[in-house]
Amino acid sequence: ACPVSGAERSSQEIWESFSQCFTPAVKEVVEFAKGIPGFQELSQQDQVMLLKSGTFQVLMVRFCTLFNAEDRTVTFLNGKTYPLSTLRALGMGSLLDAMFEFSEKLGSLGLEPDEMALFMAVVLVSADRSGISDMWAVEQLQEGLIRALRSLINRRRPDDSALFPKLLLRLPDLRTLNNLHSEKLLAFRID
């Protein structure tokens, strides 16, 4: 919501405000997943497993629009825009650099909102498969979504045959972002 908080706020208050912003974003990803055709036909256990490993990656795609690569600024939920230099001083350097790089690459592809939504669906079903019980069903779902994304993009931009493969190359980028940053520690104290 806001990169800096006043010294008068307790760690509990900071935690609560973080949670209040972050929890709805995660729930929106859950609702989004449930709207993917075929997702709810997977077993509930497999739906949960895919969401657990893919939600951070979907959020990274959603947060891309908050990163302005040209101005090197990030817009927070409080509506304020902060320069990278200010944020770097707060100690979030490596995640910010990785996010700027990723949002620049994804932004350069100029996807339409429906293409972006289909891409996020592919991201979610391409998540780490450890713990998935019906691998075949997940693969079928993924193949259908990739086919739909490819046909949408190729139909709209028949002259740009490189766009779809470029987009698929963003999947390993997201996997790396997830592996490097989702294990960041959140610590809070309760009396």
Partner: peptide, 25 residues
């Protein structure tokens, strides 16, 4: 007396998802 709890962002996401599914069952 203060208890110090530590979790990762991934743990937090996981917790929200588990709660969401448990509520809708």
């Amino acid at each position: 007396h203060k208890t110090h709890r530590v979790m990762t962002l991934a743990d937090h996401i996981s917790h929200i998802i588990t709660q969401d599914f448990a509520r809708n069952q």
